[in-house]
Computed example of a mutant assay.
Amino acid sequence: MSSSRVLKWLTGAFEIVLAIPFLGGALVIGSGYSALGLMFILHLITLILSSKNREPFYGSVVGILTSLIAWIPIVGWVMHLISGILLMVSAAQKPRNDHPTYPV
Rank of each mutant, 00 (worst) to 15 (best):
L7N: 11
G25I: 08
S67Y: 06
N97L: 14
P95E: 14
S50L: 02
I29W: 12
I64W: 03
I41R: 06
M1H: 07
G84M: 08
L18E: 00
H43F: 11
A91W: 08
T66V: 13
L27F: 11
Q93K: 11
L38G: 13
D98S: 12
G32F: 02
L86H: 05
Q93A: 09
R5M: 06
A13R: 01
L18W: 05
V28K: 11
V75N: 07
V78C: 03
L86M: 15
E15P: 02
S2Y: 07
I74H: 06
L18D: 01
A13I: 08
L86D: 02
L65R: 07
R54E: 13
P100I: 13
M39G: 04
L65C: 06
P95Q: 15
E55H: 05
L18P: 02
N97T: 12
L68C: 12
I29F: 10
S2F: 07
Y102F: 15
S90I: 07
L65A: 10
V78L: 13
S31P: 03
G84S: 10
V6Y: 06
L81H: 13
S3W: 10
V62D: 05
I69W: 12
S51F: 10
I48K: 00
S4I: 00
S60I: 00
I69S: 14
Y58E: 08
V62Y: 05
I45Q: 10
K94N: 11
A91K: 09
E15M: 12
T11N: 08
G30H: 01
I20R: 02
V75I: 15
W77G: 07
R54C: 09
S83P: 02
W9M: 05
G32N: 05
W77A: 10
G59M: 05
G84C: 08
L49G: 04
T66C: 11
L65M: 13
